[in-house]
Design a protein around this nucleic acid. Structure first.
Length: 273
DNA sequence: ACGAGGTCCTGCGAGC
DNA sequence: TGCTCGCAGGACCTCG
């Protein structure tokens, strides 16, 4: 389940192998992950293009080409990007295989194929990214901006944190962890979060995302870095996946519910208010 | 306008 | 032991 730290790790891993390289050949093996373009058109329009930059936006890896177009990869649940020396075509879950001028291969693998790959013009990318909320790790993202993202509507604070239009890059794992760290009950309405709580939540969320990047993300099951390894932040999780185990802060048993948005929500009834 | 709920996809583990 | 079923969840879609 690649969220911001995982996608950031992937982008950092593959960037040095991609920037400056020319795409020699593309093979789409599972066409249903492509959005808005057919497999043959995708293959043809990428051949011969030079890669100018690799970045992350929300939970997307963005590969910018010399001509301004972007290949936007959204791994969602089980997608992974890997740069390797040799082709990995024997793997039945490979959806796209890219041959680079350096001799290396870029592979997009996705077991459940819930992921999505777009090829966007510069203008289409501008429209795409405009629909996403602020980046939590950018300098301009203050506690006040978080408070603004939580204001309005009557949705639960956890759902608001995960709403990509309000805030970019936070998914289920880090929403659970940040709310635990800030001592906020995930089912509370977002608009009831006070200024002081928003300040605390901002501090905890930013810290958790940064520390997770330092540990190359959280591998619960499927996530792999851009070099094919597991992340290491799972050992630092305080509530996610820890139902019925003692809360590290107050010792009460951690509760798993599906009351918020029918998603797995882990929280401590003792110290999250 | 906004929010709730269904849908996609496959592997895995619980339970019978 | 082998099968079925529900769950994992991000983001889009439809409906109210």
């Amino acid at each position: 389940m690649p969220e911001l730290p995982e996608v950031e790790t992937i982008a950092r891993d593959i960037r040095p192998h991609l920037v400056g390289a020319v795409i020699r050949g593309v093979r789409v093996l599972k066409a249903d992950i492509l959005r808005g373009i057919g497999p043959r058109a995708f293959e043809r329009s990428l051949a011969g293009c030079r890669i100018a930059a690799v970045s992350r936006r929300a939970k997307h890896v963005v590969i910018r080409l010399d001509d301004g177009r972007r290949v936007v990869i959204q791994p969602r649940m089980t997608g992974s990007l890997l740069v390797s020396e040799a082709p990995v075509t024997a793997d039945r879950y490979v959806t796209i295989a890219v041959r680079l001028s350096t001799g290396r291969q870029l592979t997009y693998r996705d077991v459940r194929r819930l992921g999505a790959v777009h090829l966007l013009s510069a203008e289409a990318w501008t429209r795409y990214t405009a629909r996403l909320g602020p980046e939590p790790l950018e300098a301009g993202f203050t506690a006040a901006r978080l408070a603004a993202a939580l204001a309005g509507g009557r949705l639960a604070v956890k759902k608001a944190l995960m709403d990509q239009r309000r805030l970019a890059g936070v998914g289920n794992i880090y929403a659970n962890e940040a709310l635990w760290s800030a001592g906020i009950d995930p089912s509370r309405l977002a608009r009831t979060v006070t200024t002081a709580e928003a300040r605390r939540l901002h501090h905890e969320l930013v810290g958790i995302l940064r520390r997770s990047i330092r540990r190359r993300g959280t591998t619960v099951r499927d996530y792999r870095t851009g070099t094919g390894e597991a992340g290491a932040y799972q050992s630092r999780l305080n509530v996610y996946g820890r139902a019925r185990r003692p809360c590290p802060r107050c010792g009460r048993r951690i509760v798993l519910t599906h009351a918020v948005d029918a998603r797995a929500t882990y929280f401590c009834p003792g110290c999250q208010r």
